[in-house]
C-alpha cells in the first residue's frame, strides 16, 4: 500500500511538472501578449495543483497538507489577479491581439 502511494505521488508530480514545461513552451512560442498570458496562467494553476496533490500524499501530517492547499489557493489568487491586471494594462497601452489567418 505504501509503495502504491509513493508511485502515485511521483506520477502526479511528474505530470504537474509537465504542465509547467507546457506553460513555459507556450510562453516562448505563442505570438502575442494575451495568448502568452493564457498559457502561463493555466499552466501555473494546474501544475501547482498537481504538485501540491503529489506532495500531500507524501506529507507526514495533516497540518502540512493544510499549508500546501493554502499555497495552491494563494497561487491561484495571485495568478488570476496578475493575469487580469497585465492583460488590461496591455490592452490600454494599445497592444493589438494577433490576427489569425482563417478565423
Amino acid at each position: 500500500m505504501e509503495g502504491v502511494r509513493e508511485a502515485l505521488a511521483v506520477g502526479v508530480m511528474v505530470l504537474g511538472a509537465l504542465f509547467f514545461v507546457a506553460g513555459s513552451v507556450g510562453m516562448l512560442r505563442f505570438p502575442d501578449v494575451y495568448t502568452r498570458l493564457h498559457a502561463l496562467t493555466k499552466a501555473d494553476n494546474l501544475g501547482m495543483g498537481l504538485l501540491v496533490f503529489g506532495l500531500s500524499l507524501q506529507a507526514p501530517g495533516w497540518q502540512l497538507v493544510l499549508k500546501l492547499v493554502l499555497i495552491w489557493i494563494f497561487v491561484m489568487i495571485a495568478g488570476a489577479i496578475s493575469c487580469h491586471l497585465v492583460a488590461r494594462e496591455a490592452y490600454r497601452q494599445g497592444v493589438k491581439p494577433e490576427q489569425g489567418g482563417d478565423l
Partner: peptide, 30 residues
C-alpha cells in the same frame, strides 16, 4: 513589451515556489 517581462517575473515566482516545494520533499525538510 513590459507586460511580457512582468509575465516572465510571474512565472519565475510560481516556478520558484514549485522548486522550493520539490526541494522540501527531496531534502525531507518540511
Amino acid at each position: 513589451s513590459g507586460a511580457d517581462r512582468m509575465m516572465g517575473a510571474q512565472l519565475f515566482g510560481s516556478s520558484g515556489a514549485a522548486t522550493v516545494l520539490v526541494l522540501a520533499a527531496m531534502l525531507e525538510d518540511w
